[in-house]
Design a binder for these strands. Structure first.
Lengths: 243, 243
DNA sequence: CAGCTCATGTGAACGGCTTTTACATGAGGT
DNA sequence: ACCTCATGTAAAAGCCGTTCACATGAGCTG
């Protein structure tokens, strides 16, 4: 019984009672500390106070545990994105930018989930449920892009919503994985990852012809402006005072 | 001697003669097949035809081998980017887009290097040489952005080159890691990763005020156009016929 | 060429991990 | 009270990373 951690609150009998949940929780802790590679099945078992073989009653193998975590991550991710999108309130562009921020916030606040979702190296085709969860999360971005595309200024060609969604996703994921987590490759940045992503998305939207003026005192964007935002009052651009 | 692979061409004596190189090569093979997590030190030793302890004469531990590969990857990466950039010939915008393509091509053609560079989960601060190599590669993108920023159309605020470089990097990395490798999470895309990235960069540049017209018969972009490319002849936008 | 030295490779061993198998426990239904 | 089956344990096999004492022989020195 050397594996028995005495730290466990409640004395438990032969059966744990809630092992599956305990293992998922323990795995989350471990992954956030040591990355998905450093995480070991045995460690999770130890942390849950059971023998190294016990987890096999709940997960076929180590990969299935990680896949479960990734799936759960996508579900929480979907929730966060849904909440950020808030069905496009108060206006489409504002809500859209909020989605970008939520993406980054999730990567930062849930690095374990994020790692399991995007950096675990699992074959995505092997797990239909996992893939479906991922697609549901992406569907939020896709729906937001759809609404945004519908507002494309008249006179300009309407951008395909799917393409916009993929672009936004790649920007968010790129910023998140390169600069998003404290542990990850932190380079000296002239601005925060959040500001970086916000500027990127704004410039991109402007490239599509959306007006992106957002001064504090400004009236809400009419969304049917002239194709570009090049008019008086815009002198700083979407970036701040980056050196 | 059960580990001795008879497949080795030349019969060798007690000493391998070129073990370090052989290990790096073997590791590349293995990583491209099974990802950086699936790669094992012992496997590399087996493949090189030496005992499992031999690699320790050349690498402090497994992580150092992976770091060596990552470093080498950044060096090759820098070469490819430099070549693609070609000092901005024949014109800055064309060369800039070529850099984006080269980024993606590297991720696709050298998945093992790419994994080691960006997905190995190594602490970047622990290895100065590795970090330096990474920064040299990024410097190419940065230099290209610098040249591009200098050509910003007059009348618009000049975008900070560092920010542009970070944006381009994050787009490229985002597309590459989400859609770039055959093995990686391949979702059904309406267009290739290459086209996706190209459109993304073009839209972004247009958002900065650069003219991005690139029809086959068109004259080389004058680069001092009116702020936006919204003029006759532009009716399809940077995307193709995406559904 | 003889001899020395040290980089490089070997064998064996330790501890840890993953996974399997036979067995133990006890919660919940009959 | 009894049975059954999900859940947990113990033990073992096989792999890996890593270390250490020892073997080999390439290359220098004289």
């Amino acid at each position: 019984m050397s594996w028995r951690k005495d730290q466990g609150r409640s004395e438990r009998g032969y059966h744990h009672g809630n092992l599956k949940e305990a293992l998922l929780q323990a795995a989350l802790d471990l992954i956030s500390k040591k990355g998905p590679a450093g995480f070991t099945f045995a460690d999770a078992a130890r942390m849950a106070g059971v023998s190294p073989a016990a987890p096999y009653r709940h997960f076929r193998d180590r990969d299935e545990l990680i896949a479960s975590i990734a799936q759960r991550g996508f579900e929480q991710f979907e929730q966060q994105l849904t909440q950020a999108w808030d069905d496009g309130r108060p206006d489409t562009v504002t809500a859209f930018e909020r989605v970008g921020k939520a993406y980054l916030a999730f990567a930062r606040q849930e690095p374990a989930f994020y790692s399991a979702m995007f950096e675990s190296g699992l074959p995505p085709d092997a797990n239909p449920a996992l893939m479906a969860a991922g697609e549901r999360a992406f569907a939020i971005i896709r729906a937001a892009a759809e609404r945004l595309a519908a507002l494309a200024p008249p006179g300009t060609p309407r951008p395909p919503a799917m393409m916009m969604a993929l672009h936004i996703w790649s920007m968010s994921h790129g910023v998140a994985s390169l600069f998003g987590r404290g542990d990850a490759a932190r380079r000296k940045l002239p601005m925060s990852a959040e500001d970086l992503l916000e500027a990127e998305v704004l410039i991109y939207l402007r490239g599509l012809g959306f007006p992106t003026d957002r001064r504090p005192g400004a009236t809400p964007p009419p969304l049917n402006d002239k194709p570009t935002g090049d008019k008086a009052g815009e002198k700083a651009g979407p970036w701040g005072k980056a050196k």
